[in-house]
């Protein structure tokens, strides 16, 4: 994953930044909030623990390219890395429980994206809302270029990425690499 990436000319978005809420297809009220809630603030311990709980409950069959890690200690250190660096995170909440998490991790001038939705919340439209909220949150903070890799057999994920404006930039590997250029916020 080195070298110059190609980004689509057609920008993705603009998308509304969080916080926002919606009712999912299973009638659950889901709130999407940035993590931490504001740029200077810190998220509370309860919120961090709720994230750990989601990832330790995560179905190992839904892991992709080694993440999320399976052991709780590894989940904690992985979360500390991706939440603690120069990046942007949004979390989908069902009350006090985490339904999903999406993250942009700094990679030089660009950001690497990943999204995780807990199994019992999959297929109810949360992934699409979470993606749009993350891209809206990133764009509001000056993020322009985003990339990701996805296993090419993961059609649901590839479909979601295309829907919000990602295009394939490298199809020569086991994993597809996709990129997006974010529209300036309105």
């Amino acid at each position: 994953m080195t070298g110059d990436r190609m980004y689509p000319e057609e920008p993705a978005g603009p998308f509304d930044p969080p916080p926002l809420s919606f009712v999912d297809r299973d009638d659950r009220t889901i709130e999407i909030r940035p993590y931490p809630p504001d740029a200077e603030g810190e998220a509370g311990e309860a919120e961090f623990e709720a994230l750990v709980e989601m990832y330790t409950a995560f179905d190992p069959a839904d892991r992709a390219q080694g993440i999320p890690p399976s052991r709780e200690a590894d989940v904690r250190s992985w979360l500390e890395t991706i939440l603690g660096g120069e990046g942007y995170n949004v979390v989908a909440w069902d009350g006090d429980a985490v339904a999903g998490h999406a993250t942009l991790v700094e990679d030089g001038e660009a950001y690497e994206l990943a999204i995780f939705v807990l199994q019992k919340y999959q297929g109810s439209g949360i992934g699409t809302h979470l993606m749009k909220a993350l891209l809206g949150h990133g764009a509001a903070n000056g993020v322009e270029h985003v990339w990701l890799t996805v296993e090419r057999w993961n059609r649901a994920a590839v479909g979601l990425y295309k829907k919000v404006g990602f295009e394939t930039s490298d199809a020569e590997s086991f994993e597809l690499e996709m990129t997006a250029q974010l529209a300036k916020p309105e």
Binding site: M1, E106, D107, T149, F174
Partner: peptide, 8 residues
């Protein structure tokens, strides 16, 4: 990757 994903 920066995210921790393994890329072969």
């Amino acid at each position: 990757s920066p995210m921790g994903k393994i890329n072969l």
